[in-house]
Design a protein around this nucleic acid. Structure first.
Lengths: 230, 230
DNA sequence: TAGTTATTGTCTCAATTTGTGACAATAATA
DNA sequence: TATTATTGTCACAAATTGAGACAATAACTA
């Protein structure tokens, strides 16, 4: 936490989405000895691109490179600045915090969301936290500061983008069935979709490559596997 | 330009769209004695909400409150920081600039676009610039730093949002004809639209309130005037 | 081995939306 | 009174989407 290395007043927060058990989940950090839950976030080094800083943090939390990442909003209200919270966290970790410590200042935060393959992730806490875990969106713990709002805006943006881009595939492994893709869409949109209409729509977009069938061992017809073209 | 009053490293830029002569235009500042053109922008006071700072700047440049405003991206690459440019501008205005002046630091910039009624605006330069003028999008002067990129991303976002929200009306006066609205859409999308389809679409959205006809003095049927509901 | 079960791929038809042109209505002009 | 330019609306075709039907099939059951 060397003071001079980071841009003051500037932070980022990331809403990292994964898909498991037919549910949309996100990664949440829990800070040492405080009961405080927060989104994974961090600071930008003096000579580092903003996007690079976020990818660096993502790599540390998930072990993954080349993550689908999108910036969606910058939160800049004065009210989000509560120096007491940061002080609590730092002191719970044994730091003695001078009044004018840079981490107690007001921050604006650039928020990103990421879509990753749940199975590939090894959630990893940082120095200040004792866990980094998946939480289903409807079972989030109380989050510190305005992080709840950030999550909601991330989900809203993801929904909006889902209809324009084919981002849903980033939550799945390279090969997936049409039904799995539909479940992802249903989890994101929060509504049931019609099987035939969904399949027709997806295929008409010409972004899916069909592969061999997947024999699941279940007593029914085996579905095709698909991958995302390009 | 009192140093302590602004958050360091943080700026905003605004792409202010207006509609005139069937063209989309934006406001561009020209700095004193430098030949440099730039987007209107500014800094955030220590105790000021980010959005409030942008509205404050908008008010100064246009004279307007209650502007339709949307944040669309935060630019945070290291490469956008060119201390030489800022130094040139400051020195051309007679400031003597110490090496470590806060305005020469690296900045990240939160970019917004605004939609306003062209006729209501009184473009007003700031202390460092000698003009603030409308430029058609296809006749922009060379812009400093990455401002060209910011404009392009603003236009892209505006296009994307046009299909989801009914933002186009913000570029028109309170009462407008269907044809005027169509011209706005065509200017934003950069393509001709079909009259009947456009009219049917707009009316089906149920956001338009029909008023009396507008007698223009032209030799043809007078069109209805519309306003935006709510 | 033949029937059963659950799910899948595909097809069909209806309903809705969009593309395209036609045409009468109308405000000012000649 | 005819002409002109544009508008509001309608009609029909084309395309897309909604909703269900049904045969195909992988594994299980008996």
């Amino acid at each position: 936490m060397e003071e001079k290395r980071y841009l003051p007043h500037i932070a980022y927060d990331s809403v990292i989405f994964g898909f498991s058990g037919n549910q949309l989940k996100i990664l949440i950090m829990k800070y040492h000895n405080t009961g405080l839950f927060a989104l994974p976030g961090g600071f930008v080094k003096m000579d580092e691109d903003l996007n690079a800083a976020v990818r660096r943090g993502l790599k540390e939390r998930t072990g993954l490179d080349n993550i689908y990442l999108e910036q969606f909003y910058t939160f800049g209200d004065v009210a989000r600045y509560q120096s007491g919270v940061m002080k609590t966290i730092l002191e719970a970790n044994g730091y003695s915090v001078p009044e004018n410590h840079w981490m107690l200042d007001r921050f604006i935060s650039i928020a990103y969301y990421a879509l990753i393959n749940y199975d590939k992730v090894v959630p990893t806490p940082d120095a200040l936290s004792d866990s980094c875990d998946w939480y289903a969106l409807d079972k989030l713990p109380p989050l510190m500061q305005d992080h709840r709002l950030i999550v909601e805006k991330a989900l809203q943006t993801l929904r909006d983008n889902l209809e324009r881009k084919l981002v849903g595939v980033n939550l799945l492994p390279p090969l997936f069935t049409m039904n799995e893709l539909q479940k992802v869409y249903e989890a994101i949109l929060g509504e049931k979709l019609r099987r035939t209409t969904f399949q027709r729509k997806m295929l008409s977009l010409n972004f899916l490559q069909r592969h061999d069938k997947q024999y699941s061992g279940k007593a029914h017809k085996a579905p095709y596997l698909y991958s995302f073209k390009q």
